[in-house]
Design a protein around this nucleic acid. Structure first.
Lengths: 322, 322
DNA sequence: TTGTATGCGTTATCAG
DNA sequence: CTGATAACGCATACAA
């Protein structure tokens, strides 16, 4: 069926070893021999079997990538860059959508190990998934503390939260409310909230935070009902910000004169679909680059302990909702 | 390092074959033996090496997935569902972002073959990539004709185009312009344009189509400049529609009273970020389901030739831009 | 019910 | 410069 090295060898009239040598450019090969082999390979439309090769060299060039879902624009864009950079280095991506479910995450982890991936990049994390501590397998977390000794790459969530809150204050807002996702995840993203609270307190303003656990719309309605005098919102991502804008409009709030909103993430998709949204833009490409840089160094055992936590700068995009 | 079957066998005091039997639940195994083996596996934290297993059984449970980019919300969501369904069937996804580049696509194709994937799902296609005709490898196209004998799954692009155009006409529009992506791709999506033209002609209206090749904003400006009396636009995707709305607002057009826009795709992300956009929603989940259904049948050699082209119904979402 | 021998396709070692 | 042989970890046919 599929030709193998020995088939090529037969056609070329040489030994399998020689074919392998040509294939990998290893050792001395006679020019004539090389040509014969090349021809035979072309004739048979031969290409090597990486499964067999992987078995032997104990390396798959596979990287497992676990995030909640490619549907989310932030993860979609992040995964795009990860795949892209990985491909340029000869690595391939095994994609896992954990959907925030602990059991899925665990079973993906098992699956990736069975498949002998060279490393794992994970941005999904449910408390209690200790399985990330795999002594023999390089892992890098994105925006998530996975374990004591797993490096994390994230953007400067504290500074992002600070800039967002400060902007609203500078614009004259006083009743600023923060909305974010579930706080129980041990994620650097919680620093956004911390920064919000710090800045508010520094300005003698009372911080109020609402947490949404999926049903944004309901939480936002409640927020408006309970806080009729709210004059601005700092949302922990652009999707939530969009829902806030929607609700504010329904309530006849005038944006930005009467009511201001700032989001978080600043993905390409958000910029295209909702360009009027002011937001804190994460350096997604740089996050991907740094993550892969650290991971590949660990894979090649050049990991130094100096990069346990990498924090990349964010950028404020002031548009029309502030 | 990593324990293998023979290590487990030693600890359990049985032969490797027996361990393999326990692992795969094949043949008769004594209850005591099974327990000993199970314990040994737990003790050593053993898990099987799927690379070795794949080499032997000549099946990897890997599916290669090639699309332009996970950054695009449509592909992001589609890939999410593909991965999700595939995982439930024991298949894993090797992710490829072709970015619409022919050479990347070709090299991904080679890579996937070297990795012995069981099948390929592709929605990327540049004219002239003949490499999809792989006699021994099941391939299914999504919204793209890849080759004569490769099944295609898509939504009803003609009906979508028809509904969109008809809606605008019903709402009283007469100067309706269509914008879409590069037409030279042989894709069922071109049927959207065909439907637009047919409906326009049926109503004695002149069809006008603009093609964008990436720089949406420039094309849209040109469109408005050249057609000051345009009263509505049918955009071939929601991203373009969003840019149209933006430009229309800049030109002080009142939506929807004075100017109407309808998009295409209706992804979750669009619905969240731009809920006011009227659009034709593609059944993304169903596309993923059908695609995997056909692919797995081909993989298991149960493929019937009756499913060479599958067309799934679309749904009109009337919101506030029409 | 369990064990032995063999091969999946590749590459490294070592001999020629 | 080239070839024979073994081994990567696993699962099957065949024996016991």
């Amino acid at each position: 069926m599929k030709p193998k090295i020995s088939d090529v060898a037969k056609v070329a009239g040489v030994s399998p070893t020689t074919v392998s040598r040509v294939l990998n450019n290893r050792g001395y090969i006679g020019e004539k021999t090389r040509q014969k082999v090349d021809e035979a390979m072309k004739q048979l439309n031969y290409f090597p079997n990486d499964v067999a090769r992987s078995l032997f060299i104990k390396k798959t060039f596979l990287i497992g990538v676990i995030f909640p879902t490619t549907t989310n624009p932030f993860y979609g864009q992040l995964i795009f860059h990860i795949e892209n950079i990985a491909a340029s280095l000869g690595y391939k991506i095994l994609l896992c959508n954990s959907q925030g479910q602990e059991d899925k995450e665990r079973s993906y982890l098992r699956m990736l190990q069975r498949n002998q991936v060279d490393g794992i990049i994970a941005g999904a994390h449910n408390r209690g998934v200790k399985e990330y501590d795999i002594p023999t397998l390089p892992v890098v977390g994105v925006d998530r503390y996975l374990s004591e000794n797993i490096p994390v790459v994230s953007s400067d969530n504290y500074d992002g939260g600070r800039q967002a809150t400060q902007l609203l204050i500078n614009k004259g807002c006083r009743n600023i409310i923060h909305i974010n996702g579930p706080i129980y995840l041990e994620t650097p993203a919680n620093l956004r909230r911390k920064a919000y609270e710090d800045v508010m307190k520094d300005n003698q303003l009372p911080p109020i935070t609402y947490e949404t656990d999926g049903d944004n719309q309901a939480v936002i309605k409640q927020l408006f009902d309970e806080n009729p005098r709210v004059d601005s919102i700092f949302a922990s991502d652009d999707l939530i910000a969009s829902a806030v804008i929607r609700e504010a409009k329904l309530r006849k709030r005038n944006i930005p004169s009467d009511f201001k909103v700032i989001g978080y993430d600043g993905t390409e998709t958000t910029r295209l679909l909702l360009p009027e949204l002011s937001t804190i833009q994460q350096p997604i490409r740089e996050i991907a680059e740094k993550t892969i840089d650290i991971l590949t160094k660990e894979i090649n055992e050049e990991g130094d302990r100096s990069q346990m936590e990498t924090i990349l700068p964010v950028r404020l995009i002031e548009s029309e909702t502030t």
